[in-house]
Design a protein around this nucleic acid. Structure first.
Lengths: 247, 247
DNA sequence: TTGCTCCTCACGTCACGTGAGGTGGC
DNA sequence: TTGCTCCTCACGTCACGTGAGGTGGC
């Protein structure tokens, strides 16, 4: 029989047959006078056997070695079974993550623990496109760092703020819309208010270490994304948070 | 920060960063005077965001399009979820097949319904290496064809034979060891005995169609693998099976 | 001459891994 | 000079898919 017929009988493409030839898995058959390959039933059997091993996940490069070696096959299948189990777990975890996203209506790069905080931010009036981008980046950073020892206070604080309602939204809004020609008084007052908000959210006994590697990266990101006036507020805020609480 | 530091913070390799640059997913940062890339926290955030989408199974070629498009992301995730479900099923089926093989101690290319028959064949005394190869090929063919309409009688017959014990093994053994100078009488007798065995196994009312495509391929395979004396037996056998039963 | 089947290269896929060969500052 | 870090190509991976360009017999 010719290539097309063998391929159809075996349920593969002609290209697959060629590939098996190329990697030495399948003997080249005789050629007829016009150069066409003329396969036999034995070729069909060979293709089917190769296919059976391949379907189990044995790489073609190994199939040749194990076609007639039951012990080797069993060893390989042990490994493949483990890999399949691991892959199933990966995929199941992925599906679970997707299901979570659907429930929360959130974006893949949002930390699950901060979905509420993200929603809270998006409620802010006059949130610009640029604000959104910056927020997304920050949340991605927090998410990635959230297993870090220096992080829990931040997550706690953000959660707490998102529960504290309109008052804190108003503060963030003032910060976001801070004028370039804001007076020193305005800036002092805003920094103090934010410091108070953070302290209240964190709890007085937990002193965040702003100099920790991951934390300082977050602060750096915030500074990078701020206007000069905002930067002045932030520096005052960091100072206030770093110094012992006035009582 | 430099490449190595960014890579470590993000939990990826430097090569991954380069790859993201190459496909235009990640902005090239400034270079320092020695040509080293100097990344910012924003690059870190970008890498983390890309990674979050990639981990969910979104191809990098799509990540760029959906980074800021929640609706598109949701649509993509629907597809990916379906694909993940299908892949899990494939892998689970593979694991089930491997578990079956372990229980039966069989080879991957054996039809599950013929494990007993294969074991039965392997009990034959003086089974040569060549016999084994031929048997394996035949079983692979039967397995692949076993959903064909012309096939059930064969599977039934083989099953039945494997239950019929030593008598039939002895017949197969006589066939396998048939001498090149066997007499016509010996050949006639063996063909008749085999025909009787097959008829008994199949059941009288089921007349197999030896000319059906898949069946004739099996016969062709058997003929190809036989000695001239065996071929004579087989042709007599096929004739006997094809003609109405003398009564 | 037109169709059909078969043939042989050979590039593309996907997300990087892995050298090879070279440079600049300590 | 030796080490270290970074750089830029560029090939390899895995099992084929997909043209491109050509041939032989009806």
């Amino acid at each position: 029989m010719r290539s097309a017929e063998l391929a159809e009988l075996a349920g593969v493409t002609v290209r697959t047959l060629r590939h098996y030839h190329q990697i030495g898995l399948l003997d080249e058959p005789e050629r007829s006078s016009n150069g066409y390959r003329t396969y036999t039933v034995r070729h069909l059997a060979a293709v089917l056997r190769i296919g059976a091993f391949a379907e189990l996940g044995i790489p073609l490069a190994e199939v040749g070695r194990v076609l007639d070696d039951t012990a080797e096959t069993a060893r390989l299948l042990d490994r493949i079974d483990d890999e399949a189990a691991a892959e199933i777990e990966r995929l199941a975890a992925r599906r679970a993550a997707i299901a979570d996203l659907r429930r929360g209506g959130a974006s893949p790069d949002l930390p699950a623990s901060l979905v509420r905080f993200a929603a809270y931010l998006s409620n802010r009036p006059e949130r610009s496109r640029h604000d959104e981008v910056v927020e997304r980046e920050q949340l991605a950073l927090v998410r990635h760092f959230s297993d870090d020892a220096s992080m829990p206070w931040l997550v706690t604080a953000l959660e707490h703020m998102s529960a504290s309602g309109e008052q804190s939204v108003a503060l963030f809004d003032r910060f976001a819309r801070l004028d370039a020609d804001a007076t020193d008084d305005e800036i002092d007052e805003l920094a103090a208010s934010l410091a108070a908000l953070v302290r209240a959210a964190v709890g007085a006994e937990q002193v965040p270490t702003l100099s920790a590697r991951h934390t300082s990266l977050l602060l750096e990101h915030q500074l990078d994304s701020s206007t000069p006036a905002q930067r002045r507020v932030l520096l005052l805020l960091f100072d206030a948070l770093d110094s012992p609480q006035p009582d």
